[in-house]
Amino acid sequence: MKDESSVNVLYDLVEYMERERKRLLIATAIVLLLVPLALTLNLSGFFFMTKRILLTDSETSRTFYKVGRSMMPLYFLVTLNALTSIALVFLGIKNLLFLKSWGKKLGKIEKIEKKIYEEVIKDEEITEGD
């Protein structure tokens, strides 16, 4: 009778899953909030800067036109930034859906536990102090 109880093992696993689910939910929520925000800031910053460089009659602007330096590499970087952000948001949403199904399974487990508790304990008070 000294072998590890399967009840302990399974409950440890369920509790670990509940903790990890909460952590993953927080991490995913942070990513889903920060990524679009960072992308918006990057894009607005980029367009603001390029507009100023091209429109201002400054030395920099003239150099741009004279040398004929293309803006393509910059646009490429911005596009890459946007694509990376979209990919991150996509992965975040996928993760959220996975966590939702995980939550449903944990909910089913909770229902089983609740049913057993209600059948056995009901209104009886069994506390550690007894």
Binding site: S5, V7, N8, Y11, E18, E110, E113, I116, V120, I121
Partner: peptide, 19 residues
């Protein structure tokens, strides 16, 4: 999550498992 009845459930199931 449901610690209020998890402890009791754990004991109940251990008793059943023992039997």
């Amino acid at each position: 999550m449901n610690n209020s009845y998890r402890n009791s459930n754990s004991i109940i199931l251990k008793i059943l498992e023992c039997i």
